[in-house]
Design a protein around this nucleic acid. Structure first.
Lengths: 200, 200
DNA sequence: TATCGTAAAGAACGGGCGTTCTGTTGTCAA
DNA sequence: TTGACAACAGAACGCCCGTTCTTTACGATA
């Protein structure tokens, strides 16, 4: 039985070196290369280290046996605004360099598009002019979803709703009218995320 | 000489599949595994594809020969919702306005923190409960900036304003009172971005 | 002094991986 | 109908990679 405490022994050093390497190369190298990275000479010990880091939850393996980093490997400081304590601002010194916002918002890159929002018709849903919508392309959506539809050859972002058995597009701003498409409603994609950048 | 046009042939499909795979596993698999991913049967053709994607700038190799993604690999196409024309939905061929979300929102990783927003006191600024605020840590801000301040040992997100020569924190929701701190106002950071994720 | 346990070193091995070469198929132009 | 080319398929090979086993060094413990 080891002490089961993950990154408290010398493994913490090895983890740090691995994180630095990964920041440079975005991959976990072969055991032979890891010998150089870690500064040790035996592949078997490298394997032992990686096995422990795996058990500790920093690494896992693909179905075909490759080592890959886990979410914990990137461990960003994400504070909750409710945290009461004095100054939890530690924000993890040094090797960060890798916010995985992308991963948070995007599941299937090939089906995801970014669209800049124009106008204030979705104001009350907290979607403003200039925001960037993260849209997953598909043509099926549920009532209540915010969708990107194609109306008059333009993209439009609205809430999908149903009125007397027919689909309609409802803006989230009383100043705009509900869109009741005649014929079929062409849905381009579904809103899965939103990004806003404040000018510096 | 090939036509030198990168992701315009069928390679675009292969790139998309690779991107999706990478989103799942954060690694580029062996040629054998790539055969399954791409749906082809010959390793030599897989190598040819990766070589071309490498030339096109989507992949590169580590010193020891492993394939790794480049920045371009993570770039997403950005469309403007105003685009009027027929169907420019072609995912903007070639390099039109690609960008990477992380880079867009974060200038200096070491000074940037993510904070989950609690409550609806900034409702009218389009900032909702559960949104993630991208905050750049510094203690100087201008009137009008949205800042994270420390009040009563808690983070609070408010607009910085001035009243009769003194700084105050103004919520963007009439149901909440303006905060008029006695003594100094401790500013933790300035809001530079906002992220929202819609449940699937 | 003897006995552990930890932290490695080092050898040995079998298989999988990347590479290269050679075929095969379909399509289009001339 | 021929030829050229693109898009793969398939085999063959040598080396490197991951795994396992054995051995060494060293500090703590008793």
């Amino acid at each position: 039985m080891s002490d089961a405490n993950p990154a408290q022994s010398r493994d913490a050093e090895y983890l740090a070196k691995l994180q630095d390497y990964y920041a440079d190369w975005k991959s976990i190298p072969s055991y032979a290369a890891l010998c150089e990275v870690f500064g040790i000479a035996s592949k078997s010990w490298v394997k032992a280290i990686l096995d422990r880091l795996g058990e500790a939850g920093f690494l896992e393996r693909t179905p075909d046996g490759m080592w890959i980093p886990t979410r914990q490997f990137f461990a960003r400081p994400l504070a909750e605004s409710s945290v009461p304590a004095g100054m939890p601002v530690t924000v993890s010194e040094t090797q960060g360099e890798y916010f995985v916002i992308d991963e948070m918002l995007i599941d299937t890159p090939s089906k995801t598009t970014l669209i800049t929002v124009k106008g204030d018709s979705m104001m009350n849903a907290g979607i403003h002019d200039g925001d960037v919508a993260v849209v997953e392309k598909r043509n099926l959506a549920n009532v209540g979803d915010i969708v990107v539809a194609i109306v008059d050859n333009e993209f439009t972002l609205k809430t999908l709703d149903k009125e007397r058995g027919k689909f309609v597009l409802r803006p989230e701003n009383p100043a705009y009218p509900v869109i009741r498409p005649q014929g079929t409603l062409e849905i381009f994609g579904v809103l899965v995320g939103l990004i806003r950048k404040y000018r510096k």
